[in-house]
Each structure stands twice: as structure tokens, then as C-alpha cells.
Lab assay of single mutants.
Amino acid sequence: MLYVKVKTEDGEELVLEVEGMTEDEIREELAKAGFKIEEIEVYEVEP
């Protein structure tokens, strides 16, 4: 499983499960949803 931890400019932290997306695609999708991203951390969790 691939997850991203996202910190927004307003200090909110989100953890999202993503599969088959690049970091650029993740940033693009979050921007479309109205999030202003300060930091993204991508990590993989073994089942």
C-alpha cells in the first residue's frame, strides 16, 4: 500500500492512500480539490 502524508499551508495534516500515482499527479489532484500544499511525504506500507 502506498500512502502520502500531506501538510497544508493552514497546518492541516492528511494521510491519503494512493495507488499508481506519481507525486506530481498527487499534487495536481489535491490542487484541484482546493488544497494548498506545503509538504508531501510518500511512504509504502507492507501488508
Rank of each mutant, 00 (worst) to 15 (best):
M21F: 08
E25P: 00
G11I: 01
K36Y: 05
A33N: 05
M21N: 05
I26S: 00
V45Y: 11
E41I: 14
E13A: 05
E17A: 13
V4W: 07
E38C: 13
V15H: 07
L2G: 05
E28F: 12
E38P: 03
L16N: 00
I26K: 00
F35V: 04
A31M: 12
E23M: 15
L30G: 01
E41S: 10
E19D: 08
I37T: 06
F35A: 01
E17M: 15
V42L: 07
K7F: 11
K5A: 03
E23W: 14
E13P: 03
L16E: 00
E13L: 11
E44N: 11
A33F: 14
G20N: 09
E38W: 14
D10V: 04
G20W: 12
E25W: 04
I37Q: 09
D24I: 08
V15C: 15
G11W: 02
E19T: 15
E9W: 13
K32L: 08
T8K: 05
T8F: 13
E25Y: 04
E46D: 11
I26H: 00
V6W: 08
E39S: 15
E17I: 15
V18D: 00
K36F: 06
G11Q: 02
P47H: 07
M21V: 06
E13V: 14
G11N: 03
V4T: 01
E19F: 15
E29Y: 15
E41T: 12
E28Y: 13
V42Q: 03
M21C: 12
L14I: 12
K7A: 04
V45P: 07
T22Y: 03
V45Q: 09
E46Y: 14
E12M: 13
T22R: 05
V4P: 00
E46A: 11
V6F: 13
G34W: 03
V42P: 04
V6N: 00
Y3W: 14
T22L: 05
Y3G: 02
E25R: 06
R27Q: 03
E12N: 10
E44I: 13
Y3F: 10
T22W: 03
A31N: 06
M21I: 06
A31D: 04
Y3K: 10
E44M: 13
F35T: 01
E39I: 15
E44V: 13
E29S: 12
E12F: 14
E9P: 11
E12D: 08
I37L: 09
V18G: 01
A33K: 13
E9D: 08
L16Q: 01
E23H: 07
E41P: 01
E17H: 14
Y43H: 05
E17C: 15
E25S: 05
T22D: 05
E17Q: 14
L14F: 15
A31E: 09
I26V: 06
L14M: 10
V15A: 03
E28T: 10
E39Q: 13
L30R: 00
T22P: 02
E38T: 15
E25G: 04
I26E: 00
L2S: 09
G34M: 03
T8Y: 08
E12K: 14
V4A: 05
G20T: 04
T22G: 04
K7D: 02
E23V: 14
K36A: 06
K7G: 03
E46K: 12
D24P: 06
P47R: 07
L14Y: 13
E41Y: 15
I37E: 05
V4L: 04
V15Q: 04
E41F: 14
T8D: 04
V6D: 00
A33Q: 12
V6Q: 00
V18N: 01
E28R: 13
V4G: 00
E13H: 08
E23R: 11
R27E: 03
E25I: 04
F35P: 00
A31W: 09
V18R: 05
E9S: 13
E44Q: 12
K36L: 07
T22I: 02
A31I: 12
K32V: 04
K5Y: 12
K32R: 12
I37M: 10
R27V: 07
K32I: 06
M1F: 12
T22K: 04
V45W: 11
E38A: 13
D10H: 09
E29A: 15
Y3N: 03
E9V: 12
M1H: 11
G20I: 05
V18L: 06
G20K: 06
Y3V: 09
K32T: 05
E9Y: 11
P47Y: 09
E19A: 11
G20R: 08
E28M: 12
R27K: 09
V42I: 14
D10E: 08
T8W: 07
G34H: 03
Y3E: 01
E29P: 01
Y3T: 06
E25K: 05
K36N: 08
K5R: 10
A33P: 01
V18H: 01
K32F: 06
E25V: 04
E12G: 09
L30T: 01
G20E: 03
E17F: 15
P47L: 09
I26Y: 01
D10N: 11
E23Q: 06
R27C: 07
E12L: 14
I26N: 00
L2T: 07
M21S: 05
L14G: 01
V18E: 00
V45K: 10
A33I: 10
E41C: 14
E17T: 13
K5N: 02
P47C: 10
D24H: 09
G11E: 02
E17Y: 15
E38M: 15
E41G: 06
L16W: 12
E29K: 12
G11K: 02
E13I: 14
V42D: 02
P47F: 09
T8P: 02
I37Y: 09
K32D: 03
F35E: 00
G11T: 01
E13R: 05
Y43D: 02
E38V: 15
E39K: 11
D10L: 07
E28G: 07
M1A: 09
L30M: 06
V4K: 00
K36H: 06
R27L: 10
M21T: 07
E44A: 13
G34S: 02
E17G: 07
L30V: 03
E28K: 11
V4R: 00
K36P: 03
V6A: 04
Y3P: 00
M1V: 13
M1S: 09
M21E: 03
E12R: 14
E29R: 11
M1E: 02
V42A: 04
M1W: 14
E23I: 15
A31G: 07
V42T: 05
L2F: 14
V15E: 05
L30W: 05
V4S: 00
M1N: 07
E38F: 14
V45F: 12
E13D: 06
A31S: 10
K36G: 04
I40T: 02
E38N: 11
V45M: 11
D10W: 11
T8Q: 04
K36W: 04
